[in-house]
């Protein structure tokens, strides 16, 4: 059977009157997908909805699906009255700082573990690096707190950057390592033969080829640092408090400022969404870099 007649027959299958079973399965799939979409998007919608309400409208007995009295009061109050603008700036400093260091340290390390693991401690050291990510973050908080207090690092940007590195460096090393492993060594060897040093071959050939992977990794690591709560709660005070520990302070004994909580959450989501959309193409390529080999 040639391709066109096959296509014709396949086309007819679609044109046949839909059987009851077929209809049920289509309805089933559509309903299932719709439910997932609704469950995923509803909290986002509700946050957005709440953020534009007056404080008193957030606690009505019958919840309203649209702000009855649209206002940006929540945003203004949380940003200026409660000083969230400083917290957001702190979050930006800490997360960008930690991400930058994690990438600068982790990418060469990942390369080394991909290309020549025996010269950097072998697979056991590589696994030890990964294992740093395995313990629950709450476990080291107390000992680290006392160490950092002794060193006078409490409530400093340096402390937060260092803390997040503990989690981010292992992730970067392991992700980047697998990206480099997917690049055939012959491509780099070709560069050596073509007259470049190892360093030049790394920068001119290997690095550009894993760039989508680096972009994806950077985003993952940055989002982790941006959203981190536990360490921020324990290790920051007024000077460096990030936005995440601010949120529980809006939940008071007498009143919870739901509109401000929602407004801050929305603001905090914006950079993540914006960057993800901007990088969408590279991000998807990066996340699937290891999965599909060309």
């Amino acid at each position: 059977m040639n391709a066109s007649s096959l296509r014709e027959r396949l086309g007819k299958i679609g044109d046949e009157p839909i059987s009851l079973r077929g209809a049920m399965s289509r309805i089933g799939i559509t309903a299932f997908v719709s439910a997932i979409v609704a469950i995923t998007l509803f909290p986002l919608y509700w946050t957005l909805n709440t953020s534009f309400k007056q404080t008193e409208d957030t606690v009505t007995a019958v919840p309203s699906f649209f702000p009855p009295d649209f206002t940006i009061e929540g945003y203004i109050n949380v940003l200026f009255a409660n000083g969230a603008i400083d917290n957001l700036i702190n979050s930006m400093i800490v997360s960008l700082g930690s991400t930058a260091v994690a990438i600068v340290v982790g990418v060469p390390a990942g390369y080394a573990y991909a290309r020549n693991p025996d010269r950097v401690g072998g697979k056991h050291v590589a696994f030890w690096i990964l294992s740093l990510r395995m313990f629950p973050p709450i476990a080291p908080i107390l000992p680290l707190f006392f160490i950092f207090r002794q060193l006078g690092l409490i409530d400093t940007y340096l402390a937060m950057v260092l803390l997040y590195l503990t989690f981010n460096v292992p992730l970067v090393v392991w992700l980047i390592r697998s990206f480099f492993q997917d690049i055939p060594e012959a491509v780099e060897e070709a560069a050596l033969i073509d007259g470049y040093s190892r360093f030049e071959a790394f920068f001119k050939v290997a690095l550009p080829l894993v760039m989508p992977g680096i972009v994806a990794t950077t985003l993952l690591v940055w989002v982790f640092s941006w959203n981190e709560f536990q360490f921020a709660l324990v290790f920051t005070r007024d000077a460096t408090r990030t936005f995440t520990p601010l949120i529980p302070t809006l939940v008071g004994g007498h009143q919870t400022l739901w509109n401000q909580v929602a407004a801050l959450s929305t603001l905090a989501m914006l950079p993540v969404i914006a960057i993800s959309l901007l990088m969408q193409k590279r991000l998807i390529r990066g996340l699937t870099l290891g999965a599909v080999k060309g």
């Binding site: 055939p184 012959a186 491509v187 060897e189 070709a190 033969i193 073509d194 050939v205 550009p208 080829l209």
Partner: peptide, 12 residues
């Protein structure tokens, strides 16, 4: 100069 089995062209 060297020519590799996989050709080893620079994909980018």
């Amino acid at each position: 100069a060297m020519v590799f089995q996989s050709f080893a062209l620079y994909p980018h």
